[in-house]
């Protein structure tokens, strides 16, 4: 099988994942909708996953891909909990605008 990194250099994978990560950051900062903020976080996690798999393939070490599984597991748990919290907030505040969430200072 052809070595992928002979065709597309590793740097490009990394830059791609950095771009995706930055878009995730921008999304977190840009949006007021809590769900979209959540999705931006998922985007960041996936950017990291991409990087991990790239390095794994590059180095020939499967550990990086195993890590990706763990990230997925944690992400799944996080999403489940996060959405549950979100639903609770909506029930109480009738809004999921993060600008409305100012109760943290008490």
């Amino acid at each position: 099988m052809a070595q992928i990194f002979n065709i597309v250099p590793l740097e490009h994978f990394i830059i791609l994942s950095l771009i995706l990560f930055s878009i995730g950051v921008i999304g977190v900062l840009l949006r007021r909708n809590m769900i979209v903020v959540f999705m931006s976080i998922e985007l960041m996690l996936n950017a990291v996953n991409l990087m991990a798999v790239s390095f794994s393939a590059h180095k020939g070490d499967s550990a990086g891909q195993v890590f990706v599984f763990f990230v997925m597991v944690v992400a799944a748990a996080e999403v489940a909990l996060g959405l549950a919290i979100l639903v609770m907030i909506y029930r109480n505040v009738k809004s999921i605008d993060i600008n409305e969430l100012k109760q943290l200072k008490w």
């Binding site: 998922e42 798999v53 990706v68 599984f69 992400a75 799944a76």
Partner: peptide
């Protein structure tokens, strides 16, 4: 991309877990 990187299993799990569940 995962497929391109020879990480077939990760790719499938990714589709199933992320696209399918999350």
């Amino acid at each position: 991309f995962y497929l391109m990187l020879n990480a077939e299993f990760v790719a499938f799990v990714h589709i199933i877990v992320y696209a399918g569940a999350i």
